[in-house]
């Protein structure tokens, strides 16, 4: 029966690579302004990956220019997400990085993960 639901769901976006919590990513978001469409970038750290199928989502946290933390949650299979690029991986020991909300400045940096 689950296959029937899968048949209906949107296929995975080939422009989204495998992402992990702690990764620094840039999300390219389609934005409609009246009749024209443009693409906005949202760059930050992935602090949560949630769900499966069409309900799958991930949350990106970035620090805006005024020093205020901004979090945005994207539905992974939404047509609004044009593509995602991974800038770097971060070393984490947990899957949800909510502790970053309490930290600021240098302490909010994750140790970089190097992949061979």
């Amino acid at each position: 029966m689950d296959d029937l639901i899968k048949a209906l769901e949107t296929p995975e976006n080939p422009n989204i690579p495998e992402i992990h919590t702690g990764d620094t990513v840039t999300v390219f978001v389609r934005i409609k302004e009246g009749s024209n469409e443009r693409i906005q970038q949202f760059k930050g750290v992935v602090i949560r990956i949630h769900g499966t199928g069409n309900s799958a989502s991930f949350t990106v946290r970035r620090i805006a220019s005024n020093g205020i933390g901004v979090e945005r949650t994207f539905l992974t299979r939404s047509p609004i997400v044009e593509k995602v690029t991974v800038q770097s991986g971060g070393h984490t020991r947990r899957s949800r990085l909510y502790f970053l909300r309490q930290r600021s400045g240098k302490r909010a940096k994750l140790r970089q993960k190097f992949t061979s």
């Binding site: 029966m1 689950d2 029937l4 639901i5 209906l8 949107t10 199928g53 069409n54 309900s55 047509p79």
Partner: peptide
């Protein structure tokens, strides 16, 4: 009734749906 999921409409909005065979 098969179960529930969500689908995306043309504007990219997620719509909650029930799947029925």
């Amino acid at each position: 009734k098969v179960g529930m999921t969500q689908l995306f409409d043309d504007s990219g909005k997620a719509i909650p749906v029930t799947v029925i065979k």
